[in-house]
Write a protein that binds this DNA or RNA. Structure first.
Lengths: 345, 345
DNA sequence: AAAGCGTACTAAATCGTTTTACTAAAACGC
DNA sequence: GCGTTTTAGTAAAACGATTTAGTACGCTTT
């Protein structure tokens, strides 16, 4: 392990001062002769000089690193999101430090502090549901407040703070509209944690569409849970005992849970129960009966988020956000109820 | 955005020198009186001092950051791996910089350089298949060679370099054994890129078990591809035209592809074709006919890898690696061929 | 020939830590 | 009371860059 080559070595090799080397290598060699420039480039090349990022960060006060906090990297949605974020940040010259917080409020707080200590230039934050609960949200706000760098909420957010997120209400509205158009009136819904804007707003959108058809969501048709498989399973069990003909799951993974339990009970999708989801995970198309769902515009979401955070870090004016809309992907998980379909046309 | 509190501020507040503050805060306050210590802790607390990691890194020559390079974060296996790595590294005081290289050799090389410039303390590397191909492997070796920090290959590796990886041969051996015990003799196989040790060794294990029963893998029973859905789909199409009764897919995702195409052709698993996979993704249990597969010991893999890399970074002696074994998870994707089963008992 | 002005380059401060080598004062042995 | 050791603390160098404020030199002007 030989000592790393420093700018000083290059300077000595080229027979100039470190100042000049720094200027030239950073393209600010305004008043440097062509011959000197060449000598410096040659020396740098010869010694295989690579600048020390740490030293640079110390003096410049910026690290070109972004902290990315997600609640669950194994969730397909977040994996895809992280992938897109990384790609786009890399293009802008930023690396990302990943923190996977396993839906834990404690870890959220801890990693925010840790990242701050690393002098990252900004944080892209999708907090755990736990962090957004009434008893914890204060702590989260406090941690964000202490930060000396911009923080952008992604997907899940705290009201009043900068964020980039899907138009969740519209998303659920479309889905409900589709169900209604297929003749369903007794509709069940399985949500995620209600402190998440995604669940709250999706529920709003669903209710809106329902009320436009003079329908209402009865108490017993609402099943609150997590965005996970098990919630879907329990929901399936529950709805089997009701008279709902269709259920909208607020995430595909929940829909998978419904499929699973239904099959275990000897029931079938969509013959016995229609199911729709939100996300459009890769697996949704592979199911026995491919799932009708809303495709999340993950790439655009990441695009907008990166653009916005970069603007915030540069102190630029924030450009208006495009409305991020999910798109209905119709497959085979919804039964057409007779007699009703015509009516809607 | 107020200036960050430095050690100097703490020193002033406590009325001592920065040296003393540094010693005390780092628990090396051997010759410092109790009262002074307390003053310093109070001052630090009061000013909400957090040390500047960048400055510390510069002088100490270590960053406590690990570069983690994966070929595809959206692949469930790698997502799970990264999750486990992050958790364990965090416990050891390391943060991870994630690089998702989208199975690109060019990106592999680029990110190794980038990470080196960041003075990371070590690299956990799962290269793209492309990087391991004969024409690219030289470049990869060169990039690794230039590194002044330890690099540990994970899952995929270059022969002769430190690595942690599954016992792939044994894994495929078990799977084949299971198939044979269920009476299958005409067995097809769909592999990943053959330059990957995972595919090469799995094939070896499969062949070994076959030959033990006096069987051989005929040329036409081998379908080489990627670890992806589409390869599975194409393989299904292919094997439908042969007389194989069972196919072992070298990854679950390929098995999903087989399921998909089979259904599109009006065929069923396992009635028309038995299928097994390797990985045990969460989705494998959810399929119409749950998939029999080998469960990868991802947590142990991550454990061993982190331990080993930490040892390498500390210059410690390397403890022997436990053999990492996958475990058969029997579900419903393999048909029992009559007449043969008894014979095996 | 003195003043002014580019041009080409550099010395030195700075960023926030850690750590080595030192000092001043107190305590101790005798 | 003199030398020695211990205690409690500090000054200053170092890490490897960037950047401000120069300097030295030659060339025009007037």
């Amino acid at each position: 392990m030989s000592k790393r080559v420093t700018i000083k070595d290059v300077a000595t090799e080229a027979g100039v001062s470190v100042t000049t080397v720094s200027f030239v290598l950073n393209g600010k060699g305004g008043g440097v002769s062509q011959s000197t420039k060449e000598r410096i480039f040659c020396a740098a090349e010869k010694l295989r000089y690579t600048p020390n990022h740490t030293a640079r960060s110390l003096v410049m006060g910026r690290t070109n690193m972004i902290g990315v906090i997600v609640p669950s990297i194994t969730n397909t949605f977040f994996a895809e999101l992280v992938r897109n974020l990384q790609r786009r940040f890399a293009k802008q010259g930023y690396d990302i430090i990943l923190s996977n917080n396993e839906e834990s409020a404690r870890k959220d707080l801890k990693s925010i502090d840790l990242l701050a200590g690393r002098n990252i230039d900004g944080i892209m934050l999708t907090p755990s549901a736990e962090s957004l609960s009434p008893e914890n949200i204060g702590l989260l706000k406090e941690a964000i407040g202490k930060l000396s760098v911009p923080c952008l909420f992604l997907d899940r957010y705290v009201h009043g703070y900068p964020h980039v997120s899907l138009d969740n209400s519209a998303s659920a509205y479309s889905l409900t509209d589709y169900l209604v158009s297929r003749g369903h009136t007794k509709i069940g819904v399985v949500t995620g944690p209600m402190q998440l804007n995604s669940s709250a707003n999706r529920l709003k959108g669903l209710r809106k569409r329902l009320s436009e058809s003079g329908l209402t969501l009865c108490e017993s048709c609402l099943f609150e849970g997590q965005y996970d498989l098990e919630t879907g399973e329990r929901a399936a069990e529950y709805f089997l005992q009701t008279d709902v003909t269709a259920v909208v799951a607020f995430s595909d993974i929940q829909a998978y849970g419904i499929y699973k339990r239904l099959k275990e009970c000897g029931k079938r999708v969509p013959e016995d129960l229609s199911v729709v989801g939100i996300d459009d995970n890769v697996y949704s198309a592979l199911l026995d009966r491919p799932l009708t769902t809303m495709r999340q515009p993950i790439a655009e979401l990441a695009d907008a988020a990166v653009m916005r955070l970069v603007q915030m870090m540069n102190g630029e004016e924030l450009s208006p956000l495009p409305k991020m809309q999910a798109q209905l992907v119709e497959r085979e998980s919804v039964k057409l109820l007779h007699g009703k379909a015509e009516e809607e046309e």
